[in-house]
């Protein structure tokens, strides 16, 4: 399937759906790893929106990326419950150990902040790929990263 076919298939899937833009953008990101700017116009045409409206929605939401993330995305919760259990220090230690800052991609690994995973009673919390980590520590996350990147 060519790139254009993939997008056309996604748009066809959502044809006639009420408020289809977010579901479409989620599917596009699942297919391409990000929402490429050259998808804006075809999406706009399908939904009878302007290109600017689509671009505006993409840029509003934190989830949508304009470039693919690393193969392994590590999300670290920065919210209050995790802070109360040493989350801030954990993030600093992990940044030091991995030699990168939150918001950066280095090699296969992307480090991101997240604001609450709903794991506030087993804080600090993180997500390594699809795997949730409660009662997290920098060492445990580093070990998981080593495991998935091996």
């Amino acid at each position: 399937m060519t790139e254009d076919d993939r997008l056309a298939a996604i748009l066809a899937d959502h044809a006639g759906r009420e408020g289809a833009l977010l579901p479409i953008l989620h599917d596009v990101q699942a297919a391409y790893g990000c929402v490429p700017a050259d998808c804006y116009q075809p999406i706009a045409d399908a939904l009878r929106l302007s290109r600017a409206e689509v671009a505006g929605v993409v840029s509003f939401y934190h989830d949508f990326r304009d470039a693919p993330a690393g193969k392994h995305v590590i999300k670290l919760c920065r919210a209050e419950a995790c802070q109360s259990m040493g989350g801030t220090e954990m993030i600093a230690r992990l940044e030091h150990a991995l030699g990168m800052k939150v918001g950066e991609t280095k090699g296969d690994v992307t480090l991101e902040a997240v604001y609450c995973l709903g794991l506030c009673a087993c804080a600090p919390a993180a997500m390594v790929g699809d795997q949730l980590v409660g009662r997290a520590s920098a060492e445990r996350i580093e070990a998981l990263v080593a495991e998935v990147s091996a």
């Binding site: 009420e18 289809a20 833009l21 977010l22 953008l25 505006g56 929605v57 989830d63």
Partner: peptide
Amino acid sequence: RVGAGAYICGEETSLLNSLEGKRG
């Protein structure tokens, strides 16, 4: 319907805009 990482969409009118496919 799945949100897209915007805390403000917990506010009901922002949520409705998001549901409609708009900026929240």
